[in-house]
Design a protein around this nucleic acid. Sequence first.
DNA 1: ACTTACACGTGAAGC
DNA 2: TGCTTCACGTGTAAG
Lengths: 235, 235
Amino acid sequence: MNLGEFCENEAKGVVQSLVLDREKGELVKASGRVEKKIGISEGKTIAALKSHSEAERRRRQRINAHLSTLRNLVPSSDKMDKAALLAEVVCQVKQLKETATDVSERFFIPLDSDEIKVEIIAENAIDGTCLYRASICCEYMPHLLSDLKETINSLHVNLVKSEISTLGSRVKNVFLFTNLIDGGRATIEAREIFLSSVRQAFSSILDKVSAFPEYSAYPNKRQRISCFDSSSLLF
Amino acid sequence: MNLGEFCENEAKGVVQSLVLDREKGELVKASGRVEKKIGISEGKTIAALKSHSEAERRRRQRINAHLSTLRNLVPSSDKMDKAALLAEVVCQVKQLKETATDVSERFFIPLDSDEIKVEIIAENAIDGTCLYRASICCEYMPHLLSDLKETINSLHVNLVKSEISTLGSRVKNVFLFTNLIDGGRATIEAREIFLSSVRQAFSSILDKVSAFPEYSAYPNKRQRISCFDSSSLLF
DNA sequence: ACTTACACGTGAAGC
DNA sequence: TGCTTCACGTGTAAG
């Protein structure tokens, strides 16, 4: 029922509405409760309708403003319709994410998602000693590095190499180490147990970081990258 | 005028339409041309209206499908309304692009936008010889490298170093060189002329690449990065 | 004339 | 109840 229709029918004191019935393909009465008590507050109703349509107008403007912002961000998306623009945005986001992941894995850049990875990356053919790689990517917090150091120490591993890289407030740490305790005599089960204990140790750090109140509160930060070998610095 | 309104007025052989006048804040007649010849093709009109509303329905579905795809791509955007979702997407795209640019500049990764950069990066304090850095980022095409080689040769520069990196089908080349011809005696104007001649030479390569029919046709490619020093390989 | 895309006002549903 | 969001059918203009 549009505004014009309402006022027109208001005079008769009744509201009738016909709609297109999609299944039957014909016009039908809109509903059963078409009778209404009218005449008391036409002004109020009109005012409500007016504010409603104005609110809806504002909503559309908000959405379209974001869409045109996206248009500026996406190259050569002028004269694309809304659907095509959104399709293009989907592609861009996917591709950017994929690139970011690739770059991150190869070049050791911290991403925005927290992550822990612990894996065996090499096995000594002679004595069966394993080389492990453990990485943690998270938001920076005070004492993060000393916590990590403590964790590594408590695991009683033979640290081969450690690296840190930062991007904005994100930190990524990678550790290469061998297992001191069972070394070459480790069974597959023992290795799995060791892996999961390392994962657990790192996870508790991640929990601590997650619980830490961020003091950067998501600014439009200008991100800067730095990375270095911290083997000699930290440990 | 909605379908119900139309059919209702059709009986009277006239169409009246009231709309809310935003400036005056009151209801006014919609337009002057309210008289219509009706009774000839009601069926056709209804059919047209129906196909119209169905088309509009399909359009909405298309747009909403893309929006829900974006919802899945953006973390924790469940229960966001459309505007908030789009705002979040804008942020994500901006941040991803910024990160990509940072990473690209520092780690020498080709991005998706074609680019040429030629600049002086150092000047010899004694003889005034300049060290230049020229980079080109573009789509790969056959003979790109030999074209580049030819271009560099034709510029008669003293090539110090060249690097290539690729990401998917994108290629980025960086060249460090000094100017053989005028060397230390170059005036500021001569340097500018030299810079622009290098830019022009690279631009013609970029034009050639742009004109080249892509054979990758934008797949959802799994991008892989490789980069190497090509000084000894290429030149 | 037919299709297509957009803006609009409105009904319905969730707080 | 009032406010907000969404889907809908429609008016309208462009190709």
